[in-house]
Write a protein that binds this DNA or RNA. Structure first.
Lengths: 340, 340
DNA sequence: CTTTAGCACTCATCAGAATAGAGTGCTAAA
DNA sequence: TTTAGCACTCTATTCTGATGAGTGCTAAAG
């Protein structure tokens, strides 16, 4: 790959990303620092095609980048994108504003990413290696109802309704809260061994029926702790992409977006930092022509979640990855502020 | 409208709903109890067209029902749909299962409605004329954090995080809880007058910063109480409808589904019970060719929410409205059980 | 007066043919 | 090594005519 070939490959990719039409030799002569004739460019193109970086839809058409071509571009040719001022401001506005719920923050991050890139975005909720209980408290609401408040070590607060059968006094609530706290605080959430359950049942003699509700809640917490939910936003952006003018494709992608399990595969196994997967590299069998850019985000220096965008293979890699990087950083800052 | 015209109109509509192609005179002779020649049917059709009940896409095509035709069909010709056993079971399965969250229940109702009709479904959360506070409690979690638990008179429980600056003892929480309870219990949520705020500020002298968070939460509750959220499910069902083979239309409808305010117009102002709105009758300017069937659902005999389906004007009115009716009834039963 | 067979007429749809044009690869000269 | 020139290929567009479904009208039959 000599300099001129690189120049031409880059020119083809940039042009194609912009116009989404096969680019001809004539089309890029004179621009992109190419001061040679179209014939020369044609010769080089012919060579680039043999190398597998570009391909021809049909004989009398221009060239389009192959997945290998995009890969080469992303690895060696892509120049840094400079954020526009309004992009910077938009990111800051969205992420700086005070939010007290983890979900809202992630939602905002996804929304702004989607808005600025015009691609659907995907955000996974943070996973901690092993979530632990920090606090558990049973709070009386009225005669028939109590609320089980569970605080996890990642700062997340969950609560569940617990039905009461008999009359419970304030001291009862305090006693049960203490039992729960002693037994569970510091323990991992999916460490809900039978032994523990028995102990709870033995100690919290107050009211069997209450205990049932409590155990249901604990089991639910344990169940949810393994799977981290994934949120998609800006899905309708795909309608702006010309490769989705076909209803079938739109349907396939949108219904893919509704499958949590499939989405999971997009975020798992990513190395730390920005990762760009192009076409076949995307671990999805039934979807073609897609690229995914993801970034892990960290809490306390440890990667705990993923945020990314999904676009056609001819997506704006430079702009999108830069935006993703900035938003990911902003998200980390806000997370720290939020969790304190 | 003599008997035979009605017979023919019904035949055209049934045939069209099934095949979604203009129906010809020949096509319905012999079926639907029509023992006359196609020529006779043609004459009648010609008349029906003059009356405005059917129309012709072009000269040499069959007839399709007009919106007026559907209206006549729904009002006078439609026969009762008999639920299949598996449909009955599916409904019971979905709605009988124990759920403790209002949202989950509504979600289930929408999902099963969507699944059985193959149309997107819409469910509005119940509104109560004026929500009131039933209980308010401030619960300490740890040194820095407390939880404001708000119980509304419809049984809904909300909670908000409240940051603490100074050290708070148990009695502080109890004191503040009492103040809040005294001041707010029984009051309407959007009755957050300045006077009340001042009183709170004066009485809850404990910690200004805590109060700020509390007020933010109360304002949010008041704000949310007016607008009842609306959930859509089964949106991808529109891809099964031939009238949405055009990407533009799909985009328009899907982006409409994302606008809460627009959806609101679909559920508001509906009279009690089942309501069928056809084509132009649907209060949406920019969407054409859609019909909406809605049903109000009641709590304590008062209509508090709406559930419905959205389909093309040639939707299966009979089947859909019957299914909707049953699901709406099932939802009411489950709601009563849940709220006790 | 109602029904129906027969027939001319209309119009969408489809396949095939002709045309235009974009872009290439190759060759030979610079 | 570069480039002008040219023949060649293939797509996209337009036009054409054939096909056939379905109607409306007319005139005869019931």
């Amino acid at each position: 790959m000599d300099d001129r070939k690189q120049l031409i490959l880059r020119a083809i990719i940039r042009e194609y990303i912009g116009k989404i039409e096969p680019v001809s030799s004539k089309n890029i002569t004179g621009k992109y620092g190419l001061d040679v004739s179209s014939a020369t460019v044609r010769n080089e193109m012919s060579h680039l095609e043999k190398l597998g970086y570009i391909e021809q839809p049909h004989t009398s058409a221009g060239r389009i980048p192959s997945e290998l071509g995009y890969r080469y571009y992303v690895d060696y040719l892509m120049e840094k994108y400079r954020l526009a001022l309004r992009e910077k401001q938009a990111i800051d506005n969205q992420l700086d504003e005070r939010v007290d719920k983890l979900e809202s923050l992630l939602e905002r991050a996804g929304a702004i990413l989607s808005e600025l890139t015009s691609y659907p975005s995907i955000v996974s909720e943070p996973t901690f290696k092993q979530k632990k209980y920090r606090h558990i408290k049973l709070v009386g609401i009225d005669e028939k109802l109590a609320l089980l408040v569970i605080v996890l070590d990642d700062g997340e607060i969950k609560n569940y309704q617990v039905n009461l059968v008999g009359r419970m006094e304030d001291e009862d609530f305090i006693r049960i809260s203490n039992v729960l706290d002693e037994q569970l605080a510091g323990k991992e959430v999916n460490d809900l061994s039978g032994n523990l359950v028995e102990q709870l049942a033995f100690q919290a003699v107050a009211d069997k029926l209450v205990l049932e509700d409590v155990l249901r809640a604990l089991t639910e917490v344990a169940g949810n702790s393994n799977m981290n939910n994934i949120h998609i936003s800006g899905t309708l952006n795909i309608f702006n992409q010309p490769e989705f003018k076909d209803v079938e494709k739109v349907r396939d992608l949108l219904s893919f977006f509704e499958q949590q399990k499939a989405l999971q595969r997009l975020v798992e196994g990513g190395s730390e930092g920005i990762s760009i997967k192009i076409g076949e590299e995307v671990p999805l069998d039934n979807l073609e022509g897609l690229s995914v850019i993801t970034s892990t985000y960290c809490i306390n220096g440890k990667p705990v979640g993923t945020i990314g965008v999904i676009g056609p293979t001819r997506m704006t890699y430079s702009k999108s990855s830069t935006l993703l990087e900035k938003i990911s950083e902003g998200l980390e800052v806000s997370l720290i502020k939020m969790l304190r």
